[in-house]
Simulated scan of single mutants.
Amino acid sequence: MSRLAFTDQLSREYRTIFTKAAIRPERAALVSRLASRIRAEAPMARYRAVSAATGVPAHVVGILHSLESGQDFNRHLHNGDALTARTVRVPRGRPAAGEPPFTWEESAIDALCLHRLDDWGDWSVPGTAYVLERYNGFGYRLRRPSVPSPYLWSFTTAYTSGKYVADHVWSQTAVSRQCGGMALLRAMGEAGLIDLELGSDNAAA
């Protein structure tokens, strides 16, 4: 797991991109529907239960759930593998404790703690962007720095094209078809479903 530090410079970058990046008009209706699904009563009750156990805001749990498994409660929050067994893909063999089949809540708590989100205290826009990018990995930032991570910015004007179409296989012309986490965050904020805090410098390492 990468230990790229959450510096003031990185915080300012996230803040600047988020401030300038609008949801693409042709994607606005879809992003709004996805954000509303996250905030619906039934899934939010489960996200709040995981939030109570980890300290991760419920809407962030929901964003990760959308990104990792399309909000499927039969799949691990780690990577979308089925809850009927331990995870097969990276991170492999999770949860390490207990026996399958796992409840979604058991697996979600394990995933968030594995990524140390239970120890994270900055849930501003930049702080959220950092933990989402860290959750997915810093491969774009480290290997393709000219392409903002689609895991964060897809469906916004910050992202146009370029993605890994398979492990270690890069395409400059491929376009992500998945809604990015920051598009979902912006949609929730613009709909008044959450308060967006742009934060300040003095980021935590």
Rank of each mutant, 00 (worst) to 15 (best):
A58T: 02
H59M: 06
V60W: 03
V60I: 15
G62D: 10
I63C: 08
L64D: 05
L64A: 12
H65A: 15
H65M: 12
S66G: 00
L67K: 10
L67N: 09
L67R: 10
S69D: 13
G70K: 02
F73V: 06
N74M: 07
R75V: 12
R75N: 02
R75S: 08
R75Q: 13
H76T: 11
L77Y: 13
L77E: 10
L77D: 13
H78Q: 13
N79C: 13
N79Q: 07
G80E: 12
D81P: 06
L83M: 09
L83H: 13
A85E: 15
T87E: 11
V90T: 11
P91N: 02
R92C: 02
R92H: 04
R92L: 08
R92I: 02
R92D: 08
R92N: 09
G93M: 00
R94W: 05
P95Q: 00
A96Y: 08
A97E: 03
G98H: 01
G98P: 02
E99K: 00
E99H: 00
P100T: 05
P101I: 02
P101G: 03
F102G: 04
F102M: 03
T103Q: 15
T103R: 12
W104C: 07
W104D: 10
E106S: 04
A108C: 02
I109H: 13
A111E: 11
L114T: 05
L114M: 12
L114I: 08
L114S: 09
H115E: 15
R116L: 00
G121I: 06
G121F: 11
D122E: 08
W123T: 03
W123M: 07
